[in-house]
């Protein structure tokens, strides 16, 4: 149901585009609008759900703690029988309808595109920033590229995924907590310096 021109969740927040210490290896925080669809298998239909998502989106639903990528779509494990599918922002409405039809009787399909907000935290110091906000071990030996987890970041529940070894983390948080989380990230990044990209502005690669 996403309208094409989504407003930034931080439209009125008073944060500037950059701040903190000027050290040259500032972290980047980017608001990344996305289509987010929560799928939860009906009782005993997990295999059917996995087969259907593989067919529809070429996505192999991942095991706990993992994520899967196919083209510009990805899937994250949320809970037993439940996954979050992330797709580009602009085709949300159509994708929700398509999945709802394809998964009829197999899974509950719920649009969360507006319910959750994706913040991408990247830069050499991204792990150091998260260590201030999160009690999960994010060392590459414990949390490799593609790993995902739902945990507390800045005291709120976030679903986190390591996108690449920049490192870049996607933090998926309840939309009503997005400003809070952004402010927590900015505070934690203050010693390194930070820059902020809002939705609607140029997207990071």
């Amino acid at each position: 149901m996403s309208a094409p021109e989504r407003r930034s969740r931080f439209g009125g927040a008073s944060l500037p585009a950059r701040g903190g210490a000027a050290q040259g290896d500032a972290v980047t925080i980017a608001e990344c609008p996305a289509t987010l669809i929560q799928v939860t298998a009906r009782k005993g239909r997990q295999d059917a759900l996995a087969a259907a998502t593989l067919k529809e989106l070429a996505l192999a639903l991942p095991a706990p703690g993992a994520s899967a990528l196919a083209g510009d779509c990805s899937a994250l494990w949320l809970q037993p029988g439940g996954w979050l599918i992330q797709a580009p922002a602009n085709d949300g409405n159509a994708l929700v309808r398509r999945l709802a039809a394809a998964l009829d009787g197999i899974a509950a399909v719920v649009d969360q595109s507006h319910g959750r907000c994706v913040l991408r935290l990247s830069g050499q110091q991204a792990r150091a920033v998260l260590a201030k906000l999160c009690r999960l071990d994010l060392h590459p030996r414990s949390f490799a590229v593609g790993a995902s987890a739902t945990t507390l970041v800045g005291h709120v529940a976030c679903t986190m995924r390591l996108v690449d070894e920049t490192p870049a983390f996607d933090l998926i948080v309840g939309a009503s907590y997005a400003t809070w989380l952004l402010e927590e990230l900015v505070e934690a990044a203050d010693a390194f310096g930070w820059q902020l990209t809002r939705a609607g502005a140029a997207q990071p690669a």
């Binding site: 706990p64 703690g65 009690r135 945990t151 507390l152």
Partner: peptide, 11 residues
């Protein structure tokens, strides 16, 4: 049993 060892404040 799903997520592995996690700090108590998540519970």
């Amino acid at each position: 049993p799903c997520c592995g060892p996690r700090a108590e404040d998540e519970f």
